[in-house]
Simulated scan of single mutants.
Amino acid sequence: MTATMETTRSVVVERDFPYPPEKIWRALTQPHLIAEWLMKNDFVPEAGRRFTLSADWGQVDCEVQTIEQHRSLAYRWDTKDLLSVVTWTLAPTNTGTNLRMEQRGFKAEQKAYYHGATVGWPRFIDQLAEVVAKLD
């Protein structure tokens, strides 16, 4: 019996910010700030911690996979039949920070989820930029 690797797709959004990684990190990991740009949540920045993101349309069940302060954060993003992982990577640049978000795990038949993510993530990151701009 051979196991076949099912190919999945990813949504990647990259953006340069004129702020240090520490500032963006706060917006990615503090629940009250996450609520401002993404969704209501009970996030705790700790590997293995489960948390929920909730919106009018439903909720996302998550679990922190890896966390490296000011550098990277990955969590499971499971909703209905979508099992995916969202990874945030922060890289310092001469002018601030390059932020990279990747959500991987979209199966070929999950076109609606994939389309939703390709449209949704750039909007969320626009909102993230607004939240970060207001931080001291």
Rank of each mutant, 00 (worst) to 15 (best):
C62S: 15
K107Q: 11
E22V: 01
E46I: 07
A112M: 13
A3E: 08
H70S: 08
V86Y: 01
D81L: 00
Q30I: 14
A74N: 12
T79I: 10
S84V: 01
D61A: 15
R9A: 13
D42Y: 09
T89L: 05
E46P: 08
A27D: 10
T66K: 12
K80S: 07
D16Q: 13
S72H: 02
L38S: 04
G48M: 14
E102K: 06
T95A: 07
E68W: 00
Q110T: 14
I34D: 02
E36G: 13
P18S: 06
I125L: 15
L28W: 14
W57G: 14
T89A: 09
E109W: 14
L83Y: 06
K40Q: 11
H115K: 14
I67S: 08
A27E: 12
W121I: 12
D126C: 01
Q69S: 10
V86R: 00
E102H: 07
D42V: 05
V64K: 03
E14W: 04
L53Y: 10
L73S: 11
D136P: 15
S54G: 04
E68L: 02
D78H: 10
E6K: 05
S84D: 12
T29Y: 03
F51Q: 05
K111Q: 06
K111W: 01
Q127Y: 14
D16C: 12
A91Q: 13
A74H: 06
V86W: 03
R50M: 01
T118V: 14
N41S: 13
D81M: 10
L128P: 05
K134C: 05
W37E: 10
T87M: 07
Q127I: 09
P21G: 12
G116Q: 03
P18E: 02
A74S: 15
P31L: 07
R104A: 12
R76S: 05
R49N: 12
T66C: 02
H32E: 15
E63A: 14
F124N: 15
K23N: 06
A108M: 06
P20D: 14
L90H: 03
T87G: 04
P31T: 12
T4I: 10
S54F: 06
Q127A: 15
V85G: 05
P122E: 03
W121K: 09
A133C: 02
W121Y: 11
P31D: 14
L33V: 04
L82E: 09
R104Q: 04
R104D: 02
R9Y: 10
E109V: 02
D16T: 12
I34S: 07
R104T: 12
L38P: 06
F17N: 08
L128M: 13
D136F: 01
R9T: 08
R50G: 13
S10L: 02
D16E: 15
P122V: 08
H115N: 05
H32M: 10
W25A: 01
D16G: 03
I125E: 01
D16A: 04
C62I: 10
V132N: 07
W88H: 07
L135R: 01
R49M: 03
A112S: 07
A117E: 02
V60C: 05
I24M: 03
A133Q: 13
R50W: 02
T79P: 00
P20C: 09
T52L: 04
T118D: 00
R49A: 15
F43Q: 05
K134P: 04
H70F: 14
P20T: 11
D61W: 04
Y113W: 11
Y114C: 00
I34G: 13
E14P: 00
G105K: 06
G58M: 09
Q69W: 01
M39I: 00
W88E: 03
T4P: 06
D56R: 08
